[in-house]
Nucleic acid binder design. Structure first.
Lengths: 229, 229
DNA sequence: CAACCTTAGTGTAATTATAACACTATGTCA
DNA sequence: TGACATAGTGTTATAATTACACTAAGGTTG
């Protein structure tokens, strides 16, 4: 059933730049396209907007359909509207970026896309459309954002040792961080809650585990507290 | 000549939140709508996207058509896609914010819109659609942005006394700023160029005029210089 | 023309935040 | 039991921020 409008309309899509973190590296989730254009090439997960659906919901739905990921931290990044960005026609895309923790969210390549896989941020294959530019924008945003908002938790399991959180910052900022200063600062924010557990299955002294306390965080946000690292 | 697509498409618009500054207040540019819905109500300047045109160009074109403003500083703000935001149908809007200096850009209400006028940011009439929310988002962004990027110049004539620049910061941040510290900081950035002119037509000691030097600014940006105020 | 009003223009000291830095403690593993 | 790996902890030097008040210049007014 076709739809007719008096004036031409650009097509509208939502795409997701999904960041994950393993012990080694900051990673990015890509899918391999099943159709033309750019068939077989890697691309950001995403798809066409549906009338009556907010674009953030489009982004979440497509992410779930294509990779099985649900319930992730998701924020709008930027809207890309260069008329040449899609060879078929003028397609405007609203890009989102997402943070997931790899240990609790397993990715499965799902129906729509033939294949989904994680790539190291420094070793990404050529991407379809202008997705390389979108990725670059998202990476820059992530680096900028983590410096003044504690979003690093989203990449970790719900309880984690401080070393792991420090690792998040080091991998995203791509530079070493002083352990003592980092702990002072992050604990001083008063948004981490000390748990009565320690790490297991490590071949060295086990560290205490912490949990992000969203309630305390929201409270401090309301008070205008500054979360710069 | 109608256009037909296999799947339904949301309509797409670009809207502008235009900030200006006079001696007194931070102001916002609104137009009075000539058609339904929200006929006669005040709204942000903006209009429908054209296929083949980047949305930033749409924003500039509509701004020029509706208010006569051209050549303004314009940045993307956020994309609003709530399906209920327009009573007619699902309309996604990409919002931009613009900074203009009132002394050099005179506004004229132009063809499309019946009327255009400046309003104090603290005294805005009820707005059409979700434009109040867009305005609030833009105001928050402006406040946040000016703290780490020297965009205040965009609201001033090309040469200006430091007092005026300080006024920009005070009006946007909505708090007093220490004169000596401000001068130290802003001159220390090395992006202002001292001119051999002083103010005229003032009934007190005339101040030296300065000019923003974009070349020096771009250079410092490249070196990763920090412009926090 | 003198007194007054308004804004220009300038420096220092106290406080606070940041950055640099090294050792002991505890557990695993060979 | 000795070697190894990471946990956990304070202090000091340096840099950045804040608070603060007077003289200078020009215009206005009685």
């Amino acid at each position: 059933m076709p739809y007719t409008y008096i004036y031409a309309r650009p097509a509208l899509t939502a795409d997701c730049v999904v960041f994950g973190l393993d012990d080694e590296d900051l990673k990015i989730l890509l899918i391999q396209r099943g159709q033309e254009p750019f068939k077989e090439q890697w691309a950001l997960p995403g798809g066409f907007a549906t009338v009556g659906e907010a674009l953030e919901d489009t982004a979440r739905r497509e992410l779930s359909e294509e990779t099985g990921l649900t319930n992730v931290f998701l924020e709008q990044l930027y809207t890309f509207s260069n008329p040449e960005r899609d060879p078929r026609e003028h397609v405007v895309t609203v890009a989102y970026y997402a943070l997931v923790n790899l240990s609790e969210h397993k990715v499965q390549a799902a129906t729509d896309a033939s294949n989904a896989a994680w790539f190291c941020i420094d070793d990404v294959p050529p991407l379809a459309f202008d997705h390389a530019e979108i990725l670059k924008t998202a990476h820059a945003r992530l680096r900028g954002k983590i410096r003044y908002q504690p979003i690093g938790f989203e990449l970790l399991p719900s309880t984690f040792p401080l070393r792991m959180l420090q690792g998040v910052y080091e991998k995203i900022l791509d530079r070493p961080v002083d352990k003592r200063n980092f702990r002072k600062k992050i604990l001083g924010m008063g948004i981490l809650e000390e748990r009565d557990e320690i790490e297991t299955d490590v071949s060295h002294r086990a560290a205490r585990l912490y949990r992000f306390n969203k309630k305390k965080y929201d409270q401090k946000v309301k008070q205008g507290f500054n979360f710069e690292i």
